[in-house]
Structure formats: structure tokens, C-alpha cells
Simulated scan of single mutants.
Amino acid sequence: MNLGFIGTGSMGSILIEAFIQSEALEPKQIAASNRTKSKTQKLTDQYPDLRIYPSNIEVALESDIIFICVKPLEFKNVIDEIKNVLLPSQIIVSITSPILIKHLEDQLPCKIAKIIPSITNHECSGASLCMYGNKITEEDKQTLEELLKPISEPLRISEKFTRVTSDISSCGPAFLAFFIQNFVEAAVKETGIPREEATRLASEMVLGTGKLLTSGGFTPETLTERVCVPGGITAEGIKLMSNELDGVFNQLIQTTHAKYEEDLNKVESMFYDSSKN
């Protein structure tokens, strides 16, 4: 199997590195292109057998499965460039949430999948959110999910839940890291504890909590109840956060959905208005 990556920015490079480091793929099985040469150079410095091409068309010609890892408003230019060389047997994978499967099926002759990764895949953890177009067979789905298993837990979801599942799986690490950052900064300011020590404690806490919630038999509710002894110190902290954060997470989801709708409208205009010209 040969994989292609058009775009080797943050998420594209994370996926390439994860596939190689997990031994899901050898570097020679991966072809990549990027308009910024320094980004592909960094990858080839690390993996000399990686196949780097100057054009997206060459990546498309050399790949069975092609991951397109570019920003939403760059997507139309990429598929316009490669669509005439694609075959019905090939699979295009979008990792960009506002790009709908129907957008690509309307434009391309090949099979379409949408897979939303997470930065946690870099550590061979977290989920990959999998959505499939009408031409994808069950065998294709199995192929993609077997590819993803060494770096993640592949989960099939409905495309209508793309945004909220991405909020939790893909945006969630940044939201959680932001919480930890502020927790650490407050601890340093209020007590004088060394920042490195507080950061290490917080990081180990997150790792242990993740294990409790995945393999330890706890849910978020039961874990809170177990730690939060009535009348104790944790209970006072939970009481404070319940009051101060009331409605914040609803607003968070509303905010990400509003941005998604804004991006989706731009994508719709880009795909369908240009097709009328």
C-alpha cells in the first residue's frame, strides 16, 4: 500500500510521523508534497526514504490512498489540480471538518472518506473519527481502519456530528492543555511552587486520569464522586468551578459550531459558485 500526503503542516506531519514510528508504514511507502519546501525537507532529514515530490499531481499518481491535509479554503485548488489523474480505485481522505463528503463526491471520480485525526495520534493514542462516502466498500473501510489502529482508536461516526466529535477529540487536547496551563500558573503564583514541578505533577495527573477513564472502570461522574468526599477540600473546589463555569462549556460548543458554520459557508461558496463559472 502506498500513501500520499498533500500538505505536511502540523497535522499532516503528525500523521506521517505516527504511521512511521508505529511501524504501520515504512517511509518508502509514503509520498508527500507541500508548497513550503522547508516542511518536507524537515521530514526527509528525519526519514530519508520518504518520497517527496514537487507537485501534488505526482503524489496522486503514486498513491493508493491520498490524505489531503490543507486548510479548508485551499482544498478546492488542490482537487482541481489532481482530479484529472485520479482513478476510481483510489481513495481520497479529507482531514478537514468543513469539507463535506458530498463536496468531494460531486467533484472527483474516486472513493471519498473523511477522517478527523487528533494530536494525540502522535503518541499512538486517542481517536480517529471515520466517515465514508457512497463509493467506499466495507473492505475499503476495513483497510483504512486497520491502517489507523496502530496510531489511534478508529471510530465510525455520522458526518452530522463532525463538529461536536471534533470538539471533544481534536480540539479537546488544546482545551485541556489550556486548563492545565492556567492551573499551573495559578499554583505558581499563589504558592511559589517551581513551575517545572507543578507542570510535571499536572501532566502525570492527566495521564493517570486518562487511564482511570479508559481502562480503570471509571466514568467522569463516578471518578468525581470517588474523589469528592462530602465536606472535603475537593468538594469545595468542585463547588467553586460549578458556580464559576456554569454555562461555559455550552458557550464553548456554540462558539466552535459558529466558526464551523462560517467556514462551511465559505467552502460551499467556493465549491459551488466556482462551478457555475
Rank of each mutant, 00 (worst) to 15 (best):
F175E: 01
L3K: 09
L129A: 06
E23V: 02
K211H: 08
Q46E: 14
G133E: 10
E58W: 08
S125H: 11
C171Y: 04
T256D: 02
K211M: 05
V164L: 05
F249E: 03
S55D: 15
R35T: 09
K28A: 15
L108K: 01
E196I: 01
I66L: 06
K39D: 08
M1C: 06
G172F: 12
T162N: 07
E268R: 11
L129H: 08
I6C: 09
T214R: 03
T143K: 14
R195L: 04
T143D: 10
T224E: 13
Q142M: 13
E74I: 03
K266E: 10
P173L: 03
A18E: 08
Q29E: 15
K135E: 11
P98W: 13
E262Y: 12
L213M: 09
L87G: 00
C69R: 05
P72T: 00
A258Q: 13
T214M: 02
K259M: 08
T224R: 15
G247R: 03
E145H: 09
V227A: 15
S242N: 10
P194I: 07
E197S: 12
R226T: 06
M205E: 02
S89E: 15
E145N: 09
S38D: 10
I193P: 08
L129E: 04
S33M: 11
L212Y: 14
Y260L: 02
K114H: 10
I66P: 01
T255S: 05
E262P: 00
F271A: 06
C124N: 15
L129K: 06
I52Y: 11
I115H: 13
L147M: 10
S242Q: 13
K83N: 09
L252M: 12
K211C: 05
F271Q: 04
P230I: 02
I168E: 01
E197K: 15
L108V: 00
Q21K: 15
P117Y: 03
L155W: 15
G216M: 11
S169Y: 09
I99E: 13
